[in-house]
Structure formats: structure tokens, C-alpha cells
Write a protein that binds this DNA or RNA. Structure first.
Lengths: 356, 356
DNA sequence: CTGAAAGCGCTTACAG
DNA sequence: CTGAAAGCGCTTACAG
């Protein structure tokens, strides 16, 4: 620390009091303990004067609590994390928990400072004695989740669950149950006269990948529309290298023969929809005249004038709130069963890409 | 804490050793101190077995160091923060500092738990004994910066400085010196045949606002183009309520008379350029045929197909790196003078909005 | 109404 | 080569 900071003891000395008395006053327990008004006033005054700030480390050590919550995001792009944090903070801030946001990146670890196998991120969280973790899951960091859970740290996944939940069954989760949203999206396409509806997805090793595909199939079937396997495309998940030329070729081929081309595309998420939209328009296919496109999520960028992507809204703020509340619940009651919350939201946002 | 965690003492007891011995081994000081190979091996083995993770609180308390760095962003939107973090992490991670990202939001504070005037954010940082702060400055939180600086916590502003730096002169900074970038942008407009170049800005109470305007003026003058005050528009800064209708009206008016309309727009930043682009295209003015637009920053969205905003690249990763390095410098040498780094980058990204 | 004492989990001179 | 002891800054029964 750069500067000598005031401590309880330094204040106590200055006033010829014991540290306990000072502590009682500064913790607001003056009434209960019965500290005299004068003493109390003196303590408060000089605490203010010297700019006393309690040492969270000492407090945490002794109280066995840190009131720190880590929130792990795969990336800070596209505004997903910002909205989730909006909700998380609404719950956590008034209760004086500090949400510490961390990017789930690839980390380098020096071998001399690693005490157990497991990612560096888990290690930092464990060392810091954060009381819980809210986390956008990524298969690559599964070992971290295992370490966390084994150490008894409550984990709440947000957004989705991994396909393979082996060894992390104890994690809780808050997800968007988007079955009805997918249905609404497909029905919107059908309502606007489309029946040749393609699916574009990507495998992120996460349960919602297949769930959304399944809902797509179900929605088509409900309208007696057969699924055309040629119109089901699974692209690479994030962080895989994407050869854009290949993508472009695939799309070009799909649209080369107008009778065999789809007239609408349902994209697994906005991100995919966005890149697809770019590809499609750049090869001269008109949206929505030739093909309409709908995404999932309602990310901020989708509303930009040049984009105008129709999409289903993901209830991110609400998910953030519920994740925080779930975590609080787990902290209060550590032995409780995992809590799995699903939030339903099927708000349709109609924009240019499906507007006839 | 949910679960009883292993401690040095618990390990020491199990092996009939003293905590000091265990500490030496686990800290990697076995050689220097001269712990026997066998002891050392035993300690390491059971540490692994019980999943020992050092308590950062205890370590920090005793060592007077936390290795925590807070990084404050105004928001996590638009990908600005993500790229900055890329750079910050490159420097901090290998040195085992943990960057803790915090959203600079409006916080509610309960009066019983506030020991000094100043924002809640500063208080949390001070309590946690973070060793330094990297921060995208916002006038609203100036009191926080003052508290931090007064307490001797090194602060590095990133992106820009506040217009009014009174009482926070001691802060360091890493900024984009974009004079030459502005010049390059204007010259690009001129090179593509434009001479009626408007300026659209917003007042964020930050030095770069005026600096960019100034550079715009200078660049025009250097080409003997007079500044037309009618083409200089200052809109509201962020977090002010924006009445979109008013904005649209202003733009419509500016372009109502084609001889008096500008044929190019230089926007203070991409954000402004983006919303302007939306307004302009939605009222039927063609970009770039009627008016070309260039922004500043090269935010991720600007590259989307439907957007295609020409812009100047802001060296965000480099800024993140330098900010982290500056902070490390200040931590090492707390009494040093504030360090002000300016990074020059004038990489022009030509896209649709200036392509003839 | 206030103080002395123990303890949270670690590190680090200092003895032996 | 290993241990006993003090101390980092706080909180909280327990005395008085």
C-alpha cells in the first residue's frame, strides 16, 4: 500500500479507547452494546477525519465472509454481459455484495504458483474466497467449475448448461426457456408467408444449441411442414477458426437454385444471424424479399438501422436478477439442492429482415 | 464459507510439522530455507490431496498486498471494454495480478455503512485494498477518483481525461492521441472529393471532445477550407436523455437545402456516427452518394455488412497494455509523478460510408 | 459503559 | 533442517 492507512487501533490510540469500542461504534453496534453518546460521536468524527476505511481483508478473515461474487463472461462483446450485469447489480448492490466481473479468457499459469489442477480462474476465485460464482459456461473451463464445486463454492450458470454436465451436476442455473420463443419466431415466419424455413446453428457444446434446434423442428411439425435436412446448417462454435470463404460457399450453394432455396432462415442466435445476414446480402440475395431472417436474443446491435434484424428478446436483465437471487439463496443455504430456474420470454421484435 | 477449507495449520498438524515449514514449502522457498526433500514432498502431496488453496485474505493482510487491480468501465457495451481488457490481461495475468472489472454504474448506498463521503465504488476498492485502478473516467464519479487518489491508490485513466481535472491532477493516463487520426480522416474525405465537411460531436465532459473538434478545425484550415458553424453540431453526451425527434429534425433541416448541405460528416466517435447513420438513411439521404460519413474508434459493429462505417482505429489493446504497465510502474514507485502516455494511431479503415 | 484477550490464516525474522 | 513467536487489522464473546 502506498500510504499508511488508518486502522481501528490507530483510532483507538488517538482517543485512548480500546479497539473493541471503536469497532462497535464503526460497525453501528453502539446502541446494542451501550457505548456512550460522547464516545460514539468522538469515534465517528475522527474516523471521518482520517478517512478510515475498514480493511476488508481483516474483516473477511475473521468473519469468514468476503461478500465478493465473481461473474464470469466468455467475452464482453455484443452487450450481452452488460444487460446481465444490470440485473445482477440490482440485486447484489443493495445487499453490499460486490460483483467482480472477470473475462473467461485463456490464461497463462506459471507452474510454481499452482497448487492444484484446475484453471487459473477457479484458483483466483478460491484464493480470494469469493462467496459464489455466476458464470456463462464454456466447455473449455469445465475443470474450473469442478474445482469450484468441489470446494463448496456455489455456482450458478447463466444462459445455458453444458451438454456434458458430468461432475458439475451440483451447479445451479438460470436459463432462458425459449421453446415458446422459437415457436413464436417460426410462426412469425409462417404468418408472413414463409414455409421453406432453414435453420442455421453453431455448436457451442451447450444444451441450448440442440434445444433450439428441437424447438425449431417441433414448430415446423406443428404446422405440418417437413424438415428439410439440406436446410439445416451447423456452423462452427465460437473460438473455432472460421473460414469465411467456406461459409460463403455453403450459402451461395444453398441459394443457387431458386426452387430449392429456403425463403426464410431461423438462426440459433443473433450472432449467427448477423454474420449470415452479412454473407447473404453481400452475395446479392435480398433480405427480406428473397429470404427473411430472424435471430434470437435481441442484442443491442440488431436494432441498428443498417441491420434491422428481427429477433426474439432474451430476458437478460431478469436472468441477471434471478441468477443473483439464486446465488444468495445458495449462500444462505449451502446444502440445498441445485436450483434450476427457467425464464420464459417470447417477445417478438419485428424489424426489416422479416418485414414484407 | 460453505465448506471447511484446508489451512496451513491443518496440514501442519496432519504431518506433525510447524505451520512455518508448510508455508515455506508451499511458497516455493524450500530451497532457500533448506527444507529436506522428504518433508517438502510430503507437504506438497497432502496439499494437493486436500486441495489446499492459500487464503488470499490472510496473505494480503499480512503481506499488505492484494494483487487486485480494479478496472472501471462506464459500460460493457459496444466491445470497447473487451479490447481494453485484452491488453490489460496480457500484462497483468503473467504477473499474477487479478484485474477485477466493475461497471461504473449508479449505485445505491445505505447510510449506515458509509464511512466517508465518496462514491460506493471507491469505497469498495478501498476496503478491498486493491492496489490500483484503471478507469474510463466519467464526471459523475469524480468524487470517487478524489477519494482514491487521496488514499494513495494509483489511478490510471484510460481513453481520456476529464475536462476539469481539479483535485485529480495526480492521476496518470493513457490516451489515444488522435490528432493525426482526425487529420487522416478529414484528408480521406477531401481525397474522395468532399469539401463540405460537417462535425458531429457530443459533450462527455472529457478532454477528447474538444481536442477532436480542434483537430477537425485544424485539418480543414490546413486545406484552406473554412469552418462552417452551421455544420458543427454538438449533441447530448451519454446518459443524457436524447429526444430522437429533435435529432432527426436537426439533421433533416441541415440537408433540406442541397446547396447548403454538407457532403461529408466527421463524427467524434463511432457511437455518434452510428446513430447519425441511422437517422440519415432513415430520412432517405443516401450514404455515401449524398453524404459520406466517417467515425472514430473502429468499434466491432462498424464492420458489420449492413453498417460498413468508415472509421479510424483506436488502439484499444495497446492502450490496455500501457495502462496496465503504467499502473505497475506506479505501484512499484508510489511517489512518482503522474505518468501521461499518449498513443498515436492513425490507421484508416475505409468502408462503405466513404466509398464512392 | 469499556477493556483485555483470543482468534481468523498466513508470513517472516529469529532461535535452536 | 525445523519450530516458537509476533504480527497483519479486524470482531466478538467475556469480564469488570
Amino acid at each position: 500500500m502506498a500510504k499508511q492507512r488508518a486502522t481501528l487501533v490507530s483510532i483507538a490510540k488517538e482517543l485512548n479507547l480500546s479497539p473493541s469500542t471503536v469497532s462497535y461504534v464503526l460497525r453501528g453496534r453502539e446502541k446494542k452494546v451501550g457505548i456512550s453518546k460522547e464516545t460514539s460521536a468522538m469515534v465517528k468524527e475522527i474516523a471521518r477525519k482520517v478517512g478510515y476505511v475498514p480493511n476488508h481483508l481483516a474483516r473477511g478473515l475473521q468473519g469468514q465472509r468476503t461478500h465478493n461474487i465473481s461473474v464470469l463472461f466468455i467475452s464482453l462483446k455484443l452487450g450481452w454481459s452488460d444487460l446481465v450485469m444490470e440485473g445482477v447489480e440490482q440485486i447484489l448492490d443493495p445487499l453490499h455484495y460486490s460483483p467482480l466481473i472477470v473475462r473467461h479468457g485463456v490464461k497463462v499459469t506459471s507452474p510454481t504458483d499452482t497448487y492444484f489442477s484446475g484453471g487459473v480462474q477457479a484458483e483466483a476465485i478460491l484464493k480470494r474466497r469469493d462467496e459464489g460464482v455466476i458464470c456463462q459456461p464454456h466447455l473449455k473451463f469445465k475443470d474450473d467449475y469442478i474445482s469450484l464445486l468441489e470446494a463448496g463454492v456455489p455456482v450458478v450458470f447463466i444462459g445455458s448448461l453444458l451438454n456434458d454436465m458430468t461432475n458439475i451436476e451440483k451447479a445451479s442455473s438460470v436459463t432462458w426457456n425459449c421453446d415458446s420463443a422459437v415457436k413464436a419466431a417460426i410462426e412469425h415466419l409462417i404468418d408472413t408467408g414463409r414455409r421453406k424455413i432453414a435453420f442455421f446453428g453453431a455448436k457451442h457444446n451447450v444444451q441450448s444449441d440442440f434445444a433450439r434446434y428441437q424447438a425449431y423442428e417441433d414448430a415446423l411439425r406443428a404446422h405440418s411442414i417437413p424438415v428439410n435436412p439440406k436446410w439445416v446448417v451447423w456452423g462452427p462454435g465460437y473460438q473455432e477458426t472460421i473460414d469465411k470463404t467456406v461459409q460463403v460457399e455453403k450459402v451461395r450453394e444453398m441459394f443457387s437454385n431458386s426452387t430449392e432455396a429456403p425463403d426464410a432462415i431461423f438462426a440459433l442466435n443473433d450472432s449467427i444471424a448477423l454474420s449470415l445476414l452479412g454473407i447473404i446480402e453481400s452475395i446479392g440475395i435480398r433480405v427480406p424479399e428473397d429470404v427473411s431472417i430472424i435471430g434470437m436474443g435481441n442484442l443491442e446491435v440488431t436494432g441498428l438501422h443498417g441491420i434491422g434484424l428481427s429477433t426474439m428478446e432474451e430476458p437478460l436483465v431478469e436472468m441477471g436478477k434471478q441468477a443473483a437471487e439464486t446465488l444468495l439463496e445458495l449462500i444462505k443455504n449451502p446444502l440445498s439442492e441445485p436450483i434450476k430456474k427457467q425464464i420464459i420470454c417470447n417477445k417478438l421484435i419485428v424489424r426489416r429482415t422479416t418485414l414484407l
